[in-house]
C-alpha cells in the first residue's frame, strides 16, 4: 500500500471518529433534551387536567412542595385558576388552566417536529458514518462484513 493511500485512510478515520461520531453524539443529546421537555410538558398537562377535573381550583389548593433532597413542606395556593408556564428562553406567561392546556398542545407539536428533525439528522450522520466505513474498507481491500451464519437450534 502506498504512503499516500495510507495517509488518506488515516485522514478518513480521523474524520469518522472526530467529526461524524461527535456530531451524532451531539444530535442525540439534543434530541434527548427535547424529549425531556416534552415529557415535562405532558406531565404538566396531566396535572392541569386533574386540577380541572377535581374542581380544586374553587377552593384554596393545598400541596406539599419539595425544598430539596426530598424534604417536603406544606404550601397553600390561594388562587389555583391561573398558572405561570415557561414558554421558552426563560420567559413565563400567566395562563388560565384552559389556555395553558392549549399552549402545551401547541408547544408539544413544535417539540415533536424538532425532535423528528433531529432524528433525521441523526440518521443522516449514521448513513455518512456507514459510507465512510465502507469506503475505508474498500481502500484497505478488506472483505465485506457479511452477517455471521447461524444455525437454527430447532
Amino acid at each position: 500500500m502506498s504512503q499516500k493511500s495510507a495517509d488518506k485512510i488515516l485522514a478518513y478515520e480521523q474524520f469518522l471518529n472526530e467529526t461524524l461520531r461527535e456530531d451524532l453524539k451531539k444530535v442525540l443529546e439534543a434530541r434527548d433534551e427535547i424529549h425531556k421537555q416534552m415529557s415535562d410538558y405532558l406531565q404538566l398537562k396531566t396535572v392541569i387536567e386533574r386540577l380541572q377535573e377535581t374542581k380544586l381550583t374553587d377552593d384554596v389548593l393545598k400541596t406539599q412542595i419539595d425544598m430539596g433532597n426530598n424534604f417536603y413542606v406544606e404550601a397553600k395556593v390561594p388562587d389555583a385558576s391561573r398558572i405561570c408556564v415557561a414558554v421558552g428562553y426563560g420567559f413565563f406567561v400567566e395562563f388560565t388552566l384552559d389556555e395553558a392546556v392549549k399552549f402545551i398542545d401547541k408547544k408539544n407539536k413544535r417539540l415533536t417536529e424538532r425532535s423528528n428533525n433531529l432524528t433525521n439528522d441523526a440518521a443522516k450522520i449514521k448513513a455518512n458514518i456507514r459510507l465512510v466505513l465502507e469506503g475505508l474498507r474498500e481502500m484497505q481491500h478488506l472483505p465485506s462484513s457479511s452477517p455471521k451464519p447461524f444455525r437454527d437450534i430447532f
Binding site: D40, L44, Q64, A75, V85
Partner: peptide, 25 residues
C-alpha cells in the same frame, strides 16, 4: 410567600404554611 412549582416548567403563586412541619423522606 413563594411560587409553588408544578414541575420544572410551571408554577403558581402561593404560600408556605405550617413552617415547623417537615415531611422527610
Amino acid at each position: 410567600d413563594i411560587m409553588v412549582p408544578f414541575g420544572p416548567c410551571a408554577f403558581m403563586p402561593g404560600k408556605i404554611v405550617h413552617t415547623n412541619e417537615i415531611m422527610v423522606l
